[in-house]
């Protein structure tokens, strides 16, 4: 599904290398987790894949189902099936959540050359998904993320994911700022989208999210590289011993 080869990235504004040769191969239907200490480049990886400004790819490639992601505009990547659940979802005053969702869904369908969803079908779909995520209709009417609690913002991200039906989902520290109940709810939302074909890349600091969203493969990232990959037991090891041992091992 997603093939990342030897990805080197630095900041555009300053000469600071962040990713130093990332290799990842994510097969369709799998859940991969990336863990790593602060500043290891996890979030940068998610931004570069989704096309945020400010980063320069100096070497390497990233392909989604064979399509060169790095050559596409962010909206084209989204239409190609990529979705990033933000660590800090952005507030957009004055634009209703529903209006925003509708433009996103319509825009993607248009970019893919598919017929637009009718207003009725759209409404039905949103209501069903919102119900699963315990999102009140009031939250759909309010401006995007404005006045939402931390938990509401993250649930709103998952709602967007559910509506957009992406092939490849990246979750950037979705557990940050969530209490236990909210984390369960969000995890349920993510798990409901696991269908054997959809692929997930879950970025997190903590094992506890992975109790709810069970990964197939866990990668440890440090200093801009994947330093170790393994099964779910790798996450447990990190939880128990921290990153120090792993860093020493590979040093």
């Amino acid at each position: 599904m997603l093939e990342i080869k030897n990805l080197h990235v630095q900041l555009e504004e300053e000469d600071k290398k962040i990713l130093k040769g990332v290799n990842l191969s994510l097969e369709a239907g799998k859940v991969h987790a990336i863990m790593g200490p602060n500043g290891s480049g996890k979030s940068t990886l998610s931004y570069v894949l989704s096309g945020k400004k400010g980063y320069e790819v100096t070497a390497g490639s990233a392909h989604l189902e064979g399509n060169d992601l790095l050559a596409m505009a962010p909206e084209e990547r989204a239409a190609a099936g990529l979705f990033l659940a933000f660590q800090y979802p952005v507030e957009i005053p004055g634009v209703g959540n529903m209006t925003f969702l509708r433009s996103a869904v319509n825009s993607q369908q248009k970019l893919r050359g598919e017929p637009e969803m009718t207003a009725g079908d759209f409404l039905k779909a949103v209501r069903a998904q919102a119900k699963n995520l315990k999102i009140e209709s009031d939250m759909l009417k309010r401006p995007v993320n404005v006045g939402f609690s931390g938990g509401e913002k993250k649930r709103n991200e998952i709602l967007q994911m559910a509506m957009l039906q992406p092939k490849m989902c990246i979750l950037d520290e979705t557990d940050s700022g969530l209490d236990v109940d909210a984390m369960k709810l969000v995890s349920q939302g993510v798990n409901a989208l696991r269908d054997g074909n959809r692929t997930f890349l879950v970025i997190t600091h903590y094992q506890r999210l992975l109790d709810h969203i069970k990964p197939d493969i866990v990668h440890i990232m440090a200093a801009g590289k994947i330093i170790k990959s393994g099964g779910p037991e790798l996450a447990l090891e990190v939880e128990k011993n921290g990153y120090a041992n792993l860093l020493e091992e590979t040093a």
């Binding site: 962010p74 909206e75 990547r77 989204a78 933000f86 952005v90 957009i92 996103a104 825009s107 970019l111």
Partner: peptide, 11 residues
């Protein structure tokens, strides 16, 4: 905010 919207597929 522009990136957020574009990342959702909005041109």
């Amino acid at each position: 905010a522009l990136f957020y919207l574009r990342s959702r597929g909005v041109p």
